[in-house]
């Protein structure tokens, strides 16, 4: 765990303390940034900007015990900002939601994922293969625990679109897991 001394050192721009904090925050930030980005470079870029924000706002941290959750929250927000910035310049995400929404409405999931033989970090590969907005919705709703309203506000989409993206993400993930035989307990 990080001590108050390290945080004080970081506030005084002590590079050794900053390195120790970076080492502590690295897995937390990487776990988030890898989910929200599609490659290693983007993940590192997003993580570095997250760490810069952590350093900038470190003075506002009241309790050291809440540091992991605080760093995770900052990483999620930074990743969403990164996604928004990328979306502005990307043509990849331009598709008509309404037409696709009707097609996946009645999909059923029959798989049980209680048991898994998946290797560590392999889940990230599957998440990365999802379309950008779908991936972001899955991350925000299924993993980070935001509501559809919050997700819609963060990604500038409607709540319906958020639901649709989640549905699509679940379907795609199930298919992927089934295709690579990681899902065993099928009903």
């Amino acid at each position: 765990m990080i001590s108050n001394l390290i945080i004080q050192g970081c506030l005084k721009n002590d590079r050794k303390c900053q390195r120790m904090l970076y080492e502590f925050c690295y897995p937390i930030m990487m776990r988030v940034c890898k989910r929200y980005t599609i490659n290693e470079d983007e993940a590192t870029e997003s993580m570095n900007s997250s760490f810069l924000k952590v350093l900038e706002k470190l003075g506002t941290l009241k309790d050291v015990q809440t540091l992991p959750a605080w760093v995770k929250q900052i990483s999620v927000n930074t990743s969403i900002d990164y996604y928004r910035a990328k979306k502005r310049y990307s043509e990849r995400n331009r598709f008509t939601i309404d037409t696709e929404y009707s097609n996946v409405e009645n999909t059923h999931f029959n798989s049980d994922f209680t048991e898994s033989k998946m290797n560590t970090n392999e889940i990230f590969k599957l998440i990365k293969e999802l379309p950008d907005t779908t991936r972001e919705v899955l991350n925000l709703f299924a993993i980070d625990g935001f509501s559809h309203r919050e997700v819609a506000g963060m990604l500038n989409i409607s709540e319906e679109a958020s639901r649709w993206h989640l549905h699509k993400a679940r379907k795609m993930m199930t298919e992927k897991l089934e295709s690579i035989h990681y899902t065993l307990n099928v009903r």
Partner: peptide, 21 residues
């Protein structure tokens, strides 16, 4: 239930992942 199981599975896998600096 399946949805929740899938979500939990993904969450667990993500949390189980380890990264070293």
């Amino acid at each position: 239930m399946n949805h929740n199981k899938l979500d939990d599975f993904i969450r667990q896998e993500v949390e189980a992942s380890d990264f070293t600096m």
